Amino acid sequence: MTTKTDDDHSDTTVLVLGGTGKTGRRLVPLLQDHGASVRAASRRGPVRFDWDRPNTWERALEGADAVYLVDAQDRPGQWDAEGCIRAFADLAVDQGVRRMVLLQARVTERVGGKSLIAGERAVQECGAEWTVLRPNWFFQNFDEGVFLDCLLAGELPLPAGEGREPFVDAEDVAAVAAAALLQDGHAGETYELSGPRALTFGEAITSIAHATNRDIRYSPVGHQDYVDELVCYDVAADYALFLAELVAQIRDNKNSAPTDTVRRVLGREPRDFEDYVKDAASRGVWDL
């Protein structure tokens, strides 16, 4: 007779929304390592999920005990985050989901007319155990996200001034999400997740330049100049404003204080930016 251990979650099925995204694709193997069955959902994957197509929700939820929720606030256009998440969360509870972990952002002010924490109340009131994750900007924005093309071109222009940001590793965020999904003791918690130290963009780019032996620069630009430049590249005006105001949170040091949450939840220190840069550079992600 086999005895189930506290770390054996073979009786748990987790639906991971955004299963191919920065945190979702890192979360999936962590859950599997603990024995959980995982349904990685995306708009085009084998398990289909689309926030704009509610007819995909019920099938994605079949058999799920827990759900990792990633909303669509960072896309162009308006989106009723609270309304959609409330409808989904209510359906999930009706389908038997007992635990939810919601990824939001460590930005509590409205940016570009949007609230990046708009979905929190819907999850908190659905009746399931809930945990909210509010991370700072990811390390991975530099090597697989919005900054990569600029770094390859040798210059990153942003309206961030000399503001500081305690960038966080998406791997650490995924590890905290896995703990909250599989372990007891995280219900009702809102976790603000950061790296161990705050950096300016100038310091971050200098670190990448040294690791790659390339001339890569950070160029502070004006707020409106940044908006106008994005619009010139056919970015929708409302989305350009959203991006500029999001970066302005860093310029104004809104969330510049590092937190100890990763250490408290995982029992280890969060990954340092310098270690991330060395690893990414060794993989040649910034090579020409």
Rank of each mutant, 00 (worst) to 15 (best):
P166A: 09
T206N: 15
Q95L: 04
G145M: 02
P157L: 05
G154R: 11
P135C: 10
E125I: 04
G195A: 05
V146P: 11
Q104M: 11
A174S: 05
P196E: 00
T190I: 11
H210W: 02
L182Q: 09
E109R: 14
E120D: 08
T212N: 03
D184S: 06
L199K: 01
L152D: 04
S115A: 13
Y191S: 08
D94Q: 14
A118R: 13
N136H: 07
T200C: 11
L102I: 06
A153Y: 03
E144S: 08
W130A: 06
Q140P: 12
A209H: 01
A170Q: 01
E155P: 09
A128T: 07
A87F: 06
A81R: 05
V132I: 15
V146D: 10
E120C: 03
F142H: 05
A89T: 10
R164A: 10
L116H: 04
S115K: 02
E109Y: 02
A209L: 03
F201W: 04
S115M: 07
A92F: 06
P166Q: 01
A105I: 01
F167N: 12
V176K: 12
T212K: 05
V111C: 10
R99Y: 02
E192C: 07
L148A: 09
G96A: 01
L133V: 08
E171L: 05
L102F: 13
G112T: 04
L152I: 11
A180W: 05
R86E: 13
E144Q: 14
W130M: 13
L91E: 09
C84D: 13
L148G: 07
F167Q: 09
L199E: 04
S207K: 13
K114G: 12
A178H: 02
G113A: 06
A204F: 02
V107H: 07
K114P: 15
G83Y: 03
S194Y: 00
R99C: 10
G127A: 10
A122L: 10
A198V: 00
N141A: 02
G188E: 01
A204W: 02
F88L: 15
L151M: 11
F139T: 09
P196W: 00
M100W: 04
E120A: 12
L103W: 03
A128R: 07
V93F: 09
I85M: 08
H210N: 12
R110F: 14
S194Q: 06
E165V: 11
V97P: 09
G145W: 07
D94M: 03
E144W: 01
E189K: 15
A122E: 10
K114S: 12
R86Q: 14
T108S: 12
M100S: 04
C84Q: 15
L151Y: 03
T200S: 14
V132H: 11
S115P: 00
Q95F: 02
E82R: 14
H186E: 11
A105C: 08
I85Q: 14
L158Y: 12
E203Y: 00
F88W: 09
V107P: 07
P135M: 10
A89E: 13
W137A: 13
D90F: 02
V168Y: 05
V111G: 14
E165K: 05
E171D: 14
